[in-house]
């Protein structure tokens, strides 16, 4: 699972409708895709993602992960033209895969497991 996926997922448990995004991410095991399998560095795609992404959610999440990448508070028109910045984003959004971990709802504390790179968002019958 990549951070781009984390950025679009919220808790959907019965009754949990506020403060249910972003999920707190715990990455116990992660790896970077090699160049063969990752999509190639593509500034145009990254710039379009910048328009759509929940920037604060991404920035907060990255700051908790100890990956040695710090994202600025705000996006700007100059920033999305900056090569070094786009390379950071390429690493964070395209190459890096969380293999094992958890996502925890900040509101109801429901835990969503990530196993073999696949997040499991399914709820039990009594949670729907």
């Amino acid at each position: 699972m990549k951070l781009i996926t984390h950025n679009i997922l919220m808790c959907n448990k019965k009754g949990c409708t506020t403060n249910n995004f972003p999920l707190k991410l715990v990455a116990t095991n992660w790896k970077d895709l090699d160049t063969e399998n990752a999509q190639q560095y593509n500034p145009a795609l990254l710039q379009r993602l910048c328009e759509k992404i929940e920037w604060n959610a991404l920035r907060q999440t990255v700051s908790t992960l100890n990956w040695g990448v710090n994202l600025p508070e705000q996006l700007s028109a100059e920033l999305v033209q900056d090569e070094a910045f786009l390379q950071d984003l390429h690493l964070l959004l395209v190459k890096r895969q969380i293999v094992e971990g958890q996502m925890v709802c900040p509101n109801c504390e429901r835990v969503y497991e990530i196993k073999n790179g696949i997040p499991n968002m399914l709820l039990r019958e009594d949670e729907v």
């Binding site: 996926t5 679009i8 808790c11 395209v94 790179g117 399914l122």
Partner: peptide
């Protein structure tokens, strides 16, 4: 799906969920 992607040098983000139930409003 993930294994097929690797063998074909593709990149697919997979999510185990029902419909789009967990997608945020942003989507």
């Amino acid at each position: 799906t993930l294994r097929t992607a690797i063998q074909n040098n593709c990149d697919v983000q997979v999510i185990q969920q029902s419909f789009c139930h967990n997608f945020t409003n942003l989507m």
